[in-house]
Design a protein around this nucleic acid. Structure first.
Length: 877
RNA sequence: GGGGGAUUAGCUCAGCUGGUUCAGAGCAUCUGCCUUACAAGCAGAGGGUCGUAGGUUCGAACCCUACAUCCCCCA
């Protein structure tokens, strides 16, 4: 049979993914004989498509889950999506608009029908894409945050928290998106640098004709909402205005001058107009000074009747017009340009967010935050890397109440029902609400039609924060087998950008509803950026299509490529070179397989490879220990690098070369047996990173039983052999001799195959004898001999206290050889001197620990030996 | 403005409580090779006064103090 010299992943990947599913390897169910290992996916937006961030995040999860599965744990990775309320609604609105339908023309029910249609069409594409990446999720457990059961969980929690007195309605300053006509969270606001205009306006001082107070503002259209002008009490320029009033230009309304140290003396004119309804800081100032609130902005960004002037016009149109009108009225002193930051909507990038007072639902955080901080502080939940603990603490100590209502339709409608008298009841269902309402009002004839449910829906995070519990139906059925077995989950993999508003809140929900943390470790990935360090974005077009990448480089190549440079918490600078490296690694493994596959065993041959076999076992065991340690510490890229080097450098470059029989010659059976066992061990260690190629080779390497897959093969356990250090040190020395020979070949341009002689003048003749076979094979040496002196006309190199000679008639440049050796000697002498100096220092001798002292003495002895050998070599020239 | 993190080879990063061979890895670079597993490869080589300036110590990339630069979070 002939195997292609390059590995082609496309044929292989679909086949194995299908078989894994047929075998049900990814399905998990409570099994008391096994330790559970649970991961819940950070649910992506149901209508989203896979991007590079998902690739990184899900690769890491799959590595963790696959390894746990191989370790014999009941590995359960729960997939699913969230309904991404504002993003999805914005998409649906845009789509309808293209069809000429305005949202305002539809009823809530009609709109939701459209939205579900959209969701059913595009929803879940992303989950199909994850399969191409190799994600080993238990697909039977796929959940969606807006499915009936999860919706019920959300409503139950809302009712419960309301009954506990933790949910309240209140007027607050929110970020208002006038286009979507909803409040959005701080995290959905994107600051943008802009050049803004600063308008200097004269407010006439009441009762003092000709006196003005000049106020600087970037938003002149809000003067109708002014309720005061504030100045700093320490500002002498305004001391005379104590107790005075000023008149709003154009409008003529009188407002007081107030004094507050909040006002910066050197910003603008030092006088600040106070507009509590339209600026958070002003709002707080207003509360402090007991000022009224005048809200002049309608939900759609136009001015309402409270503005008196410009009613019904958009705020930006008004800004232009009022500047002109102020100018004409002689109230505009000047306009200055200045660099400022405008808050934009993440979902509607062309829309300026307005701070707006609004009636919203809030969840009190203090009670929930305290224990959630505690469990991170005491490491019940560990953050990886731990530097995020500080950030977490800072946020939790300054937590604000959570605005959980959104003025949207796509989401869970708030289960609050208003009564004709203006009061409301909160209940899980309309029927319950009616019952409550009747009781509350004492009117048994109250009908459902008398109740009006709150129009708003809940923030999407109000469903995602329940995710680790709700995916196991822990609200509907709090004592069911799944939740008891799989909760708390083990590891959560997500980005630090949602540490607060998702991770922290899940911790709160877990503690509140299960009295247990939702997970034990939080692995925080970085952001995937391009090679120049820019964030990947559609606008820049710097994000490759993940599926194209998989098609081009194979899922295994992409997975390893992403992990190569992705230490936890660090941003990943994506470069196509990384996935190339991953692809090349697949190919390397493929070719190692091709080599081994071609070997024919001959039972009559003696076992000649004891040294390589013993040595590679030592390397393998050491690597397993190292990998386990890396995994323990969530250092995925280091674990990958360990196996990468073991496969490429130790197995392929060294071991296989050592045991490889001559072309078309058979190999001894014992060596082949060991080699195949090693190959299997490597496939297992590699499998979490490269599931597809390892499965393919697993089946190519031997006949397998129907359930014998590397996916469910036991994770290798290290058994560290006796004398491991010695085994490795000896081989290292032998390989150093080989490297010395190869260096000579390179320097003398001899080519890799020209047979050479090697003469060793060594203090370790046993080593040279033991490893002669390896030295001959890897160095293409015809004959190794021991001698007390080097032959004339030879090139030499010194290793430790030994000197090695390669006779080379006609290739010797005596002067150059001498120069090279002298340089080495000088270097060694300098080194000896520094060690001697250190040892000669009395304080060092007194203070250093014995083992440190011993090491220094050893260094000195080594240096002495080397110097002696070099001196000999020079003499011999 | 407040808080946090960072600064080690061209790039991305390791470097555990200060002391193994004058600082390590991967990638990139350079040189030579199509040596029947692999040119998506093989062999070899070069490259860093560990941001700057002080200090503690027998000894500092590691500890302390300033300063500089960058990033993040909050306001």
């Amino acid at each position: 049979m002939s195997l292609a010299p390059t590995y082609s992943p496309t044929d292989v990947e679909a086949k194995w993914y299908q078989r894994w599913q047929q075998q049900g390897f990814f399905k998990a169910k409570p099994n008391l004989k096994k330790v559970p290992y649970t991961v819940v996916i950070p649910p992506p937006n149901v209508t989203g498509v896979l991007h590079m961030g998902h690739m990184l995040n899900n690769t890491i999860q799959d590595v963790l889950v696959r390894r746990a599965r191989m370790q014999g744990k009941e590995a359960c990775w729960v997939p699913g999506t969230d309904h991404a309320s504002i993003a999805t609604e914005a998409k649906v609105v845009a789509l309808l608009k293209e069809q000429g339908i305005a949202k305002t023309d539809l009823t809530r029910e009609q709109f939701l029908a459209h939205a579900f249609e959209w969701k059913d069409k595009y929803g879940g594409i992303i989950l199909e894409q994850l399969k191409q990446l190799g994600a080993s999720c238990d697909w039977d457990r796929t959940r969606f945050t807006m499915e009936p059961d999860l919706t019920e969980a959300v409503l139950r929690v809302f009712v419960d928290l309301y009954n506990k007195g933790l949910i309240y309605r209140g007027v607050r300053m929110v970020n208002w998106d006038p286009k979507s006509r909803t409040a959005i969270s701080d995290e959905e606001v994107v600051p943008k640098d802009v050049m803004a205009k600063m308008y200097y306006l004269n407010y006439a001082v009441v009762g003092q004709e000709g006196q003005f107070l000049t106020v600087a503002t970037s938003r002149p259209e809000t003067i109708m909402a002014d309720v005061a002008v504030a100045v700093n009490p320490n500002d002498p320029r305004f001391a005379h205005l104590a107790g005075q009033k000023v008149r709003i230009p154009l409008l003529g309304r009188e407002i007081p001058v107030i004094f507050d140290e909040y006002v910066s003396i050197d910003f603008g004119t030092g006088a600040l107009k106070v507009t509590p309804a339209h600026d958070l800081n002003d709002y707080e100032l207003g509360v402090k000074h007991n000022l009224p609130v005048i809200d002049i902005l309608a939900d759609d960004g136009t001015l309402n009747e409270k503005a008196v002037l410009y009613v019904g016009q958009d705020r930006f149109a008004v800004r232009k017009q009022i500047a002109k009108d102020l100018q004409e009225a002689g109230c505009l002193v000047k306009i200055e340009e200045y660099a400022s930051i405008t808050q934009m909507s993440e979902r509607n990038p062309d829309t300026v967010i307005e701070p707006k007072l609004s009636l919203q639902w809030f969840l009190k955080m203090e009670h929930l935050a305290k224990p959630a901080l505690e469990v991170v502080e005491n490491d019940t939940i560990k953050l990886h890397p731990p530097k995020f603990k500080n950030m977490y603490r800072a946020w939790m100590e300054n937590v604000r109440d959570w605005c959980i209502s959104r003025q949207l339709w796509w989401g869970q409608q708030i289960p609050a029902y208003y009564l004709p008298d203006g009061t409301f009841v909160v209940a899980l269902t309309a029927a319950d609400a009616l019952e409550k309402a009747r009781a509350q009002t004492g009117k048994p004839d109250l009908q459902l039609s008398d109740l009006r449910q709150d129009e708003d829906v809940l923030d999407t995070w109000f469903s995602s924060w329940l995710w680790p519990i709700s995916v196991f139906d822990g609200f509907k059925d709090p004592d069911n087998a799944d939740i008891n077995y799989f909760y708390p989950t083990n590891d959560l993999v997500t980005g630090p950008d949602i540490l607060f508003f998702w991770v922290a809140r899940m911790i709160m929900a877990g503690l509140e509803y299960r009295q247990e943390v939702p997970f034990k470790n939080v692995y925080l990935t970085g952001i995937v950026r391009d090679a120049q360090g820019r964030k990947m974005s559609k606008q820049l077009g710097n994000s490759p299509d993940p599926l194209d990448l998989i098609a081009q480089y194979g899922a295994d190549g992409v997975r390893t490529g992403m992990l190569f440079s992705a230490p936890a918490g660090n941003d990943l600078l994506y470069d196509v070179k990384l996935v190339e490296q991953g692809r090349n690694f697949s190919n390397k493994l493929w070719n190692a397989f091709r080599l081994v596959k071609g070997w024919e065993a001959d039972a009559s041959l003696p076992f000649v490879n004891a040294k390589p076999v013993e040595w590679f076992n030592a390397k393998l065991q050491a690597a397993i220990v190292e990998m386990d340690d890396h995994f323990e510490k969530f250092r995925m890229s280091d674990a990958l690098m360990t196996i990468y080097k073991l496969v490429w450098d130790d197995f392929c470059a060294q071991y296989l070369e050592m045991v490889k029989p001559a072309y078309q010659h058979p190999i001894d059976a014992e060596t082949l047996r060991h080699t195949l066992a090693y190959f299997e061990a490597l496939l297992k260690l590699l499998h979490p990173f490269m599931p597809f190629i390892t499965e393919e080779l697993w089946h190519e390497l031997a006949e397998r039983g129907p359930r014998d897959y590397v996916t469910v093969a036991p994770w290798p356990r290290a058994t560290v052999p006796a004398h491991i250090a010695e085994t490795m040190a000896q081989m290292e020395k032998a390989l150093a001799i080989v490297a010395g020979i190869r260096t000579v070949r390179n320097q003398k341009n001899l080519g890799p195959n020209k047979p050479l002689m090697l003469v060793a003048k060594t203090d370790e003749p046993q080593l040279v004898t033991d490893y002669e076979g390896i030295i001959r094979k890897l160095g293409s040496i015809a004959e190794v001999s021991l001698a007390d002196a080097g032959p004339a006309a030879s090139v030499s190199f010194v290793l430790g206290g030994s000197e090695f000679f390669i006779p080379l008639e006609g290739h010797i440049d005596l002067a150059a050889e001498r120069a090279r050796l002298e340089k080495e000697l000088e270097y060694a002498q300098g080194f000896r001197e520094s060690v001697q100096k250190k040892l000669g220092n009395e304080k060092f001798a007194q203070n250093a620990k014995p083992d440190v002292l011993e090491r220094e003495r050893q260094k000195l002895a080594d240096a002495e030996a080397k110097i002696a050998a070099l001196a000999q070599a020079l003499k011999g020239l």
